[in-house]
Amino acid sequence: MIDWFSRIKKFYDDGRWIKEMVHDVVAVGRITPEQYEEITGEPYKLEPPTE
């Protein structure tokens, strides 16, 4: 089983992903809104972030 949280957090921390990409994986159920906040430091909102 893939640990989506760890993988996505690493991609974000390494600068390979932006907040919008992390937002998209919440929408498809790979991570939770709470995990989004843990990764990005911002609360999850239904509207995608703009960077």
Rank of each mutant, 00 (worst) to 15 (best):
M1Y: 11
M1N: 12
I2N: 13
I2G: 10
D3K: 05
D3Q: 02
D3E: 15
D3R: 07
W4L: 08
W4D: 10
W4S: 05
F5Q: 04
F5E: 11
F5M: 02
S6P: 09
S6G: 13
R7C: 14
R7T: 15
R7L: 14
R7M: 13
I8Q: 01
I8T: 04
I8W: 04
I8P: 00
K9F: 03
K9V: 08
K10H: 06
K10D: 06
K10Y: 10
K10V: 09
F11Q: 15
Y12G: 08
D13Y: 07
D13Q: 12
D13N: 09
D13V: 09
D14I: 08
G15P: 00
G15E: 07
G15A: 02
G15D: 00
G15R: 01
R16Q: 05
R16C: 07
R16Y: 09
R16A: 14
R16E: 12
W17V: 03
W17D: 01
I18S: 06
I18K: 13
I18E: 11
I18V: 15
I18T: 03
I18H: 12
K19F: 04
K19A: 02
E20Q: 14
E20N: 03
E20I: 15
M21I: 02
M21Y: 08
M21T: 09
V22Y: 01
V22A: 08
V22G: 00
V22S: 02
H23M: 04
H23C: 03
H23N: 09
H23I: 08
H23Y: 09
D24W: 07
D24G: 07
D24L: 14
D24R: 07
V25I: 12
V25N: 00
V25M: 02
V25A: 00
V25G: 01
V25C: 04
V26G: 02
V26D: 03
A27T: 11
A27G: 05
A27R: 13
V28G: 03
V28K: 11
V28P: 01
G29N: 06
G29V: 08
G29D: 11
G29I: 04
I31Y: 05
I31K: 01
T32S: 15
T32M: 01
T32H: 01
P33H: 13
E34P: 02
E34C: 02
Q35C: 11
Q35D: 13
Q35M: 11
Q35T: 10
Y36D: 10
Y36W: 08
E37N: 05
E37Y: 03
E38T: 13
E38I: 14
E38F: 05
E38R: 06
I39V: 07
I39A: 02
I39S: 04
I39N: 02
I39E: 02
T40L: 12
T40D: 09
T40W: 12
G41S: 10
G41I: 14
G41T: 07
E42P: 04
E42H: 13
E42R: 13
E42W: 12
E42A: 14
E42V: 15
P43M: 03
P43E: 13
P43Y: 03
P43H: 08
P43Q: 03
Y44G: 00
Y44E: 11
K45S: 15
L46G: 15
L46Y: 13
L46Q: 13
E47V: 03
E47S: 10
E47C: 05
E47L: 05
E47K: 11
P48M: 06
P48C: 04
P48S: 01
P48Q: 06
P48F: 10
P49I: 08
P49W: 02
T50H: 10
T50W: 11
T50I: 12
E51T: 12
